[in-house]
Amino acid sequence: MSSDIALLDPGHKAAGLTATNVSCWFGTKKVLEGVNLDMAPGQVTALIGPSGCGKSTFLRTLNRMHELVPSATLAGEILIDGVDIYRGAIPVTDVRRRIGMVFQKPNPFPAMTVAENVVAGLKLSGMKVTRAERDHLIESCLTKAGLWNEVKNRLGDPGRALSGGQQQRLCIARSLAVSPQVLLMDEPCSALDPTSTRRIEQTISEISETVTVVIVTHNMQQAQRVSHRCAFFLAAENEPGRIIEEGATREIFSNPVDPRTNDYVNGRFG
């Protein structure tokens, strides 16, 4: 089983992610235990829960960013379309290319222009494209991220010359340019104003047909607006985080099974 998905295949499909029994440690401290979660292809899954319960950690295990922290270890299994991502069936760089990530703080590459930022992923993962393809890619990705009209005359400016919201959309465009099958987003709107937030939520809805989205958010309205499914994480004091409940977003918000979920989504704790 190899990763021979044609690069930039226009007809590529969103992929499903399955996490089974995932536990994580930082050093000897266990921060996540026995997480099972199915992230179906083409759907938006929201991860919610109070601060420090391990949402970011879980998200980072999904594209092998977790192991970059020196003391970090994990157990369990994560499959993309049925293929294990940790045991060498797919090279780690391909895993990360297929499962993209947008970070909490916008982080465009400072030494690159707007246009260069969009196609940075091609350079970084060694994909060759013709000039026409590249120009097309720049335009289509920026359009998908809802940024094209704002920056089409500023493609030569440094990436950091944009506003925070624009930078974040640039980062989304950058992730989309390598045609990921899954896009992980860690509180992508937490540093943004309501307008930019709306714009990004719209982007998420638009791309979710071709990309599976997993998003961490502290904003309950946002979770309701954008996600199809929802997973509620919780960590008791001095214990690792777990999934308390997961299911269709509507269910989680209208009649949750667990009282703790009910409390959380109604803003009664955390």
Binding site: N21, S23, L74, G76, E77, D84, R87, V92
Partner: peptide, 24 residues
């Protein structure tokens, strides 16, 4: 979640079965 496709030779006996990520 029902179909746990486990790779051969990695019995999931306990959760503390620490995984060594393979980096090629």
């Amino acid at each position: 979640m029902s179909e746990n496709i486990l790779s051969e030779g990695t019995p999931v006996t306990s959760t503390s079965d620490v995984l060594t990520p393979v980096v090629r």
